[in-house]
Simulated assay, not measured.
Amino acid sequence: MALQEVGRLLGLFMFCSVLLASNGQQLSPNFYSSSCPDLLSIVQSEMRRAVAAESRMGASILRLFFHDCFVNGCDASVLLDDTGMFIGEKNAIPNAGSLRGDQVIDGIKARVEAACAATVSCADILALAAREGTTLLGGPSWTVQLGRRDATTASLNAANTNLPPPNGTLDVLISLFVSKGFSAREMTTLSGAHTLGFSRCVNFRQHIYSDADIDPAFAAQRRQGCPVASGTGDDNLAPLDPTSPAEFDNAYYQNLMLRRGLLRSDQELFNGGSQDSVVMTYSNNAAAFRVDFAAAMEKMGGMGPLTWPSGQIRLNCRRVN
């Protein structure tokens, strides 16, 4: 009788564990293995198409994921358009005019909905797309935990206050990352995402015209595409890593040691402060950077995920059901 009772309780425990996982209370890389087995192949094929059409898109999707997770967790709130109930995060100062890639996520979502309707969250699609975009540009892979739910609102104020500013000092940057559970070293590691992509003139104008800790030749080169007058050429682009902007490597850190950081916040990582040694390590050891970056990205994916019964599976990533 006792053995039968133990067996019954064990069976009940196993059933409840499966139920919890299916309801999203437990993230797992295999969360959709039964409910949407083609999910990964869909994301991979759509990201291959997007990056082939524009290599910059890999960096844009990675940035989109970062800007989502740093505002109330990885909940796809960044993808929501404005409504009569709230002003979305797309219009926040760090995002307005520069946030890209939401159309790519729309395309992936449409294919996923056709394959397995009302099953996969936009938050999970974005997390997978960020990884795939990175690996397509030569970056490392990492484990993506799945089972998130989507937010039903967004926060313009949180986006304006939680995202690192392009002119931030080292103390400000460290403080922002520590508030999100990251160490100063992890902050420097994640900043290495700037080995990919571009930035707008409005974000680096002050650095190239006003700061002394910048290579003069590099500053002069950047000034050619970024006029000193505010409001003139604000949207002109320059590569964050002028050496290899479409290749995931450690050139970003090598450039910092040469005083060729495009943003004020970039050069702050190598400016006689606490992160100089980390920049030097990554500059000389690309493998160490790759390993640490993958670990930091996996950690970022665990930032405040919504799980059942919170949130919803949005059928359209731009609006609440």
Results as ranks from 00 to 15, higher is better:
292 D>I: 09
17 S>T: 13
147 G>F: 05
4 Q>T: 15
70 F>S: 05
40 L>Y: 12
164 P>C: 08
205 R>N: 05
298 E>W: 11
280 M>Y: 08
155 S>Q: 03
199 S>Y: 04
234 D>A: 13
248 F>P: 00
82 D>H: 06
3 L>I: 15
221 Q>V: 14
39 L>N: 13
14 M>D: 13
185 R>M: 08
115 A>I: 13
250 N>C: 02
273 G>T: 14
128 L>Y: 15
38 D>I: 11
197 G>V: 02
285 N>F: 10
136 L>S: 01
251 A>M: 10
198 F>D: 00
62 L>N: 05
36 C>V: 15
297 M>H: 12
86 F>E: 01
263 L>H: 14
262 L>R: 04
66 F>W: 15
149 R>P: 02
256 L>E: 04
124 D>Y: 14
56 R>N: 01
180 K>L: 11
173 L>F: 13
92 A>H: 09
177 F>V: 09
284 N>D: 09
103 Q>V: 07
305 P>K: 03
226 C>R: 09
29 P>K: 08
228 V>E: 10
179 S>F: 10
247 E>A: 04
267 Q>S: 04
293 F>L: 12
321 N>I: 03
291 V>K: 13
214 I>V: 11
58 G>Y: 01
315 L>W: 08
28 S>I: 09
266 D>G: 07
269 L>A: 06
109 K>P: 14
11 G>I: 07
110 A>P: 15
196 L>Q: 02
121 S>Y: 10
261 G>D: 05
89 E>Y: 01
252 Y>Q: 03
45 S>G: 06
303 M>T: 15
68 D>I: 05
287 A>F: 08
287 A>V: 12
86 F>I: 00
186 E>W: 11
294 A>N: 06
25 Q>E: 08
214 I>N: 00
173 L>Y: 12
187 M>E: 12
314 R>V: 08
63 R>V: 09
57 M>Y: 05
166 P>W: 11
202 V>R: 09
77 S>Y: 03
135 T>Y: 01
199 S>F: 04
115 A>L: 02
146 L>M: 09
110 A>V: 10
226 C>N: 07
200 R>A: 06
29 P>W: 11
179 S>A: 13
96 A>C: 01
2 A>L: 12
54 E>F: 00
123 A>S: 07
116 C>W: 11
17 S>D: 08
170 L>R: 06
187 M>Y: 12
185 R>G: 14
223 R>A: 12
